[in-house]
Write a protein that binds this DNA or RNA. Sequence first.
DNA 1: CCCTGATTCGC
DNA 2: GCGAATCAGG
Length: 174
Amino acid sequence: MNWTDERVEKLKRLWSEGLSASQIAAQLGGVSRNAVIGKVHRLSLPGRAKAGGGTSAATRPAKRQTSAPRAPNYASRVTTRTVTRQAGATLLKEEIEIDTATEVAYAPSRNVVVPISRRLTLTELTERTCKWPVGDPLKEDFHFCGCDSNEASPYCNFHRKMAYQPVNERRKAR
DNA sequence: CCCTGATTCGC
DNA sequence: GCGAATCAGG
């Protein structure tokens, strides 16, 4: 794969947006993260602040609403909470709005923790990321859960249950 | 072990 | 110019 003008432009754009080299490589396709870094240097693009060691890129805060089906006839309060966590390639710092009614609807078992989606695109999935699709594939917003899938399953703990458990198990558990 | 960017150097 | 290997760090 050679560096066409389009690919170079895309590289510049994504790099300036703060995506990591590996993420850019995934989106461009056909190149390694080393190739991306090498190209960045050759283009004399500004490196990441903090010379001499990998400072993680600042991932832009993505405020998203959890638009899940609302439980009817339930008074729903919306709480806002800020969550920060290091998730492998991505520093996630997002303000999330949680509809309490939605939480109940999707987490009927007291032991289940609803994961926060890493919002990965198809090319960013690895062998240990949850491949549960989120949203409408025809929409821009479409992404995959991307949480740690614990090696055995293609899904994370939560979505594995979603995938393999019949709906009626939720009733029984309660 | 996962990841990050930086540098080197044979091609 | 390119990028794998390597380094150095979180």
